[in-house]
Amino acid sequence: MTASPNTPADQARALLADLEGQRRREEQAFRAGFEAGYRDGWEIGYAHAHHEMAAEWEALAAKVRAMTEVATVNAREALDESAARGEPCAAACGRCSRCARAAAVARRGGDYLGERAHRGAA
């Protein structure tokens, strides 16, 4: 009795004979899948980053526009006059430049007008 060409033993021999080919096909499939996943992940991440940066720039632009509104000359003069009188900021925080100037005005008895400061003997 001759063995049929499709016996399990023949199939096992054929698979073993093609072991290197199978390894190459698996490696190619893995590489293709990895590259596709990497590329898709990069594109999705790039899109998310693009949207995040656009939102951050929008918020920054709004902040800059709000800060750069030009005050009228009268408003600037009133602010300078109140600072020269030694008035602290509205919160009287004691930490900002306006509060520091107010403290200096209080110590000196008036605003510094550019003359040499008179100090005690060193």
Rank of each mutant, 00 (worst) to 15 (best):
R98H: 00
A32R: 15
A66L: 03
R65C: 01
A54I: 10
K63V: 01
R39E: 10
C96G: 03
P88K: 01
R25I: 02
R107C: 04
S97Y: 03
Q28C: 03
R101C: 03
R25C: 00
E81V: 01
A84C: 05
M1P: 08
R24L: 09
T68D: 06
G114E: 03
E81S: 09
M53L: 15
H51K: 15
P8F: 07
A32V: 06
D10M: 11
P5K: 06
R119I: 07
S82Y: 00
Y38C: 08
Y46G: 09
R85P: 00
A103Y: 04
Q11W: 07
E58L: 11
G114P: 03
A29V: 04
E58F: 06
R13E: 05
R25P: 00
R76A: 04
F30I: 11
Y46M: 13
T68N: 12
A92Q: 14
A66P: 03
A14Y: 08
T2A: 08
A83V: 12
Y46E: 15
A9V: 13
M67T: 09
A3S: 13
R85Y: 00
L79N: 14
R95H: 06
F34P: 01
G41T: 05
P88H: 05
A59E: 10
A55Q: 13
Q22M: 04
D18L: 07
M67S: 12
Q11H: 09
A84M: 05
G109K: 02
E26S: 12
A55K: 15
N74M: 06
E81Y: 04
Y46V: 15
A100W: 06
R25A: 10
Q22T: 11
H118Q: 13
Y46T: 14
G37F: 05
N74A: 14
Y38H: 15
H50W: 08
A90S: 13
E43Q: 15
G21C: 03
E52T: 11
R25V: 05
P5E: 04
A71R: 15
A103V: 08
L60Y: 10
A32G: 05
D80F: 08
A117D: 09
W57G: 10
E77W: 12
E52F: 08
A55T: 10
E52L: 09
C89A: 04
E77P: 02
Y112R: 11
R23E: 08
A36F: 02
A90D: 11
E56F: 12
A3K: 13
A104F: 03
S4G: 08
E35S: 04
A59S: 07
N6H: 08
I44L: 14
R85H: 01
R31P: 00
E35D: 13
Y112G: 02
T72Y: 00
N74C: 02
D80N: 13
A29W: 03
E115V: 09
R108G: 05
A91I: 06
D18K: 14
W42Q: 15
E87I: 07
D40T: 09
D40A: 15
S97T: 09
L15M: 12
H48A: 15
R107F: 06
G41K: 02
E43D: 07
E27S: 09
P8W: 06
A54M: 10
L19H: 14
V70P: 07
R107N: 02
T2N: 12
G21A: 11
A117I: 15
P5G: 02
Y46R: 15
A121V: 12
R85G: 03
E81H: 10
A100Q: 10
C89Y: 02
A92E: 11
Q28S: 07
